[in-house]
């Protein structure tokens, strides 16, 4: 039995009269790549937002490494080891790529005003560590040559890569990628999926939202399918492919439209 790193238990989330998530439960095991799929409006990103503390579930529990994270502040959740990217890229545009990643690395640091002002050993050590970590992650993503470029000046693809790098720099246990391949051409998508596998091989657990069924099938270990805020299926890629409920859900929506 693999160890669960994140447990989502009967989470329901309502906005006024609208039920965005309805009694959703799933677990993510340490070291796996879990795909979260479903038609548009199925509640995938909402689910992400509940996990990362943007929304607080109306009911139900979310625990990370055995401890409940419901109601924790967003930055606390990040510091505990959940990092994410955004469906619409949200970098810090006037900061360089390196600085963007350094902000991520700073999540695990505690240098404050006085330490920085007097250049105390803690500041020096954390600066050095953060810097090494940031360069390492940038290199891993293949964008270290652009470390000094402003994030706003990077190409679309590099901005997406930088988002992943920034998330990795926070030194998370679980990394949540929200449609990281959106807007990529097929070749780039394949490259990205290889990268995601390598992210996992580095010891991260990955939660992945993706529309492209083929890609999801290729890269994930297990898949959870949402429709209208409810979980309709869970299982290995092969199971999901043959699951009549999933087929029905996806037949209702043209796949090209969905992405």
């Amino acid at each position: 039995m693999p160890e669960a790193i994140l447990e989502v238990q009967n989470v329901t989330l309502k906005f006024g009269g609208l039920t965005a998530l309805d009694d959703v439960s799933f677990t993510i095991n340490e070291g796996e790549i879990l795909g979260l799929i479903g038609p548009n409006g199925a509640g995938k990103t909402t689910c992400f937002n509940a996990v990362t503390g943007v929304y607080r579930p109306t009911s139900g529990g979310i625990s990370f490494q055995g401890r409940s994270i419901v109601g924790l502040k967003k930055h606390k959740i990040t510091q505990q080891g959940i990092a994410r990217t955004f469906q619409n890229i949200r970098l810090f545009p006037t900061m360089t790529a390196l600085e963007n990643v350094l902000v991520g690395a700073d999540a695990q640091h505690s240098t404050g005003m006085l330490s920085a002002l007097f250049r105390l050993p803690k500041h020096r050590r954390e600066e050095r560590e953060g810097h090494d970590r940031a360069m390492e992650v940038l290199r891993f993503m293949g964008i270290h040559r652009k470390a000094d470029e402003l994030a706003a000046n990077l190409s679309y693809g590099d901005q997406r890569r930088l988002e992943i790098a920034r998330a990795m720099a926070t030194n998370p246990k679980l990394i949540c990628l929200d449609e990281p391949a959106a807007g990529f051409n097929p070749a780039e998508k394949v490259e990205l999926m290889n990268l995601i596998r390598r992210v996992r091989d580095q010891g991260f657990t990955v939660l992945l939202i993706e529309h492209d069924m083929k890609l999801v099938m290729g890269v994930t270990d297990r898949i959870v399918v949402l429709e209208f805020g409810r979980k309709i299926a869970e299982g290995s890629p092969a199971d999901i492919r043959d699951n009549p409920a999933v087929i029905a859900a996806y037949l209702g929506v043209d796949e090209e439209d969905a992405s």
Partner: peptide, 30 residues
Amino acid sequence: ADILIKNSRVGRAWEATREDEDAAELMGVP
């Protein structure tokens, strides 16, 4: 003091907050 603080975690946190407060928060910046 300005120079020392700006080139540190504190300065970066300020800038990140200015650029995108929600994203900064989700990247672990209080």
